[in-house]
Amino acid sequence: MTKGPLSRNKLIDRVFKITALVATVVGLVFLSVLIIDILIDGLGRVSWSFLTSFPSRRPERAGILSAIVGTLWVMGLTALFSFPLGVCAGIYLEEYAKKGVLTKLVEINIANLAGVPSIIYGLLGLGIFVRTLALERSVISGALTLTLLILPIIITTTRESLKAIPFSIREASYALGATLWQTILRQVLPVAMPGILTGTILALSRAIGETAPLIAIGALTYIAFLPESVFDPFTVLPIQTFNWVSRPQKGFATNAAAAIIVLLLLTLIMNSIAIYLRHRFQRRIKW
């Protein structure tokens, strides 16, 4: 055996390893550059008056008050709608539905819904909530649209959390004469809840950054008042950002960067809560 091919193989292996490592790190470098760039562009603009002012024609006087309030309204309602609906649907599919062709079909359907582009949900919301139900371009139309968008994620996360609960717990409950619903409500769901909450928060943190479906249903890009009911028009942070990005003046780009910092902070907070919950959940329960 000669040394030649073996050391050549080793060389290829090393080169490949380094290339692969670089490829892995590219994403992280990109992420760091993105964050640094946005901080440089926008950090100087983030101030109390920026948070508490309405948008304005003059970039240095503009703020994100209506966008923040709009985002809170829409997200609050989205959470209110999507959590119970998603959890109930997940429970039905996991605990009640008979395993068969129909259930399989529903599963494929949900997987596909998760892959439908968000802008299509916007068209759905436009057709059903805005036009057919005549809810107009309101907070509630936006929240219902985002609810449909994240429902597949919450359903899937609920099912996975339920699946992870050992059968022995259910068995113990049934053996005491508990009904299916009693078993689910009192034994299974409490244990599954941290997992479900984690998934729901992650889904909501996705919804908070959604722009396209809300533009499609006609959320306004310039709004100088706060919604007073769920039937009022609204704007949200990503839309306000988008509006500023698409203006030529430099000052608005700075505003966009500042709005992005606030948006990223909100997303970060939500993700941290989710990670904290998951962590606690993993530590607490040992079977």
Partner: peptide
């Protein structure tokens, strides 16, 4: 990376 709102990427693509 997958969790960053896409409007942020848009900003980055256009302005950086």
């Amino acid at each position: 990376l997958a969790g960053v709102p896409t409007v942020v990427y848009g900003y980055f693509a256009l302005l950086f």
